[in-house]
Simulated assay, not measured.
Amino acid sequence: MRLISYLSIFILHFVLYGQTNTKFTTLKSALNEPEKAKWLELNCKDEQPLSQLEQLVNVQQLYLKDCALKELPKEIGKLQKLTLLNVQNNQLTFLSAELEALANLSVINLRGNDFEKFPSVITKLPKLREIDLTDNAKLDFSDVIEQLQQVEKLDFLYLSENNLTTLPEQLSLLNALQELHLTNNPNLDLTQAFSVLSKTASLKILVLDENQITGIPSSLSKMTQLEGLVLDGNPNIRLDQLSNQLEKLQGLKVLLLRNSQIEKLPENLDAFNKLAVLELSGNRFSETEQARIKNGLPDTNVVF
């Protein structure tokens, strides 16, 4: 799930772990071939106790999604080769200290759980680079961001679906952060958010899809470090205001405006002509308008 190129933003830039590995969906099958068990995606109906995970020392990716877990088996801490842990859509309120032993963990997905306090064990994982905290609205995100300053390699952060209204000022201190997802936070104060993010010097990609965005505050133009901007699913977005701000974002290379019921871009396309990629699929452009845009942006890869 790493950022690998501008075009990777199209597919949410997932790097497929274990492309040559077999996916095991039950503990029983994995225990029968423990040497091959590197990718474990359990269906939660397995009759084997999760404590037996400690026997699968070669596991690199572990998925325990939608399992109604209130706590994780402590045996996970013995999976020294684990690089990815996905426990989304459970009922977790804490993570045990045993997870501190996961020295190779680089990706953790905690979306859709019941955390009220940020699990501090996360700050002790030396290789951690990606954290998904989507749909954990009970968290105090000022405290979260303050603690995340200890995750030195963090460059990919999901804070989507958390009813955010503002962003903590400390977010600008996440010195390695390159990509931030803020999907479906419709009450987010964009003026304040852009002001904070403009100070986050390492930030390259910002995802703001499905945020009911209408006007584009002028503070967007302060984010001169941006290379990719995702605004999908915002059907009421003011394209004239967006166009005015884009002209000031000289480094922007990728813009996504998919699924937004757009029928026409502004007559003047100059604000878009420095883009490498303009993704407009899922909209309502006529063939005539598509041709006008293509002709007006000959050096941009325009996708309808």
Rank of each mutant, 00 (worst) to 15 (best):
L231P: 04
L206Y: 01
I237Q: 08
E267D: 15
L188R: 04
E152S: 15
P217N: 11
N259V: 06
I216N: 04
S260Y: 00
S260V: 04
E247W: 03
N273Q: 12
T200L: 13
S219N: 13
I205R: 10
K274V: 00
N273G: 03
T166G: 00
N184D: 12
L174E: 00
Q150V: 07
P168A: 12
V230M: 04
L275Q: 06
E152K: 15
N234G: 03
N268C: 10
L220R: 03
K204G: 05
L208N: 05
L278W: 09
N268Q: 08
D270A: 15
Q250G: 06
P235Y: 05
A176S: 15
N187W: 07
L278T: 01
N187I: 04
K153S: 13
A176K: 13
T200N: 14
A201W: 02
L265Q: 05
L265C: 07
E279S: 12
V151T: 14
K274S: 02
K253T: 06
L275W: 04
Q225F: 06
Q149M: 13
L208R: 05
L275E: 03
Q241D: 10
L182H: 05
L220T: 09
L164C: 11
D209W: 02
L275N: 01
L275F: 02
L206W: 01
L154G: 12
L255Y: 03
K253S: 03
Q261V: 06
R238D: 15
D209L: 01
F156W: 14
S160Q: 10
E169N: 15
E227N: 02
S195C: 10
L252H: 02
L190H: 02
G251L: 06
L174K: 07
A201N: 13
L239P: 08
L173H: 14
K222F: 14
S195L: 14
V254E: 09
V230S: 07
S221Q: 14
F156A: 09
L190V: 09
L265E: 00
T214R: 14
Q212H: 11
N187Y: 08
N234D: 01
F272V: 02
P168Q: 10
E227C: 04
Q149H: 11
L173D: 13
N244G: 07
L171G: 09
V196Q: 10
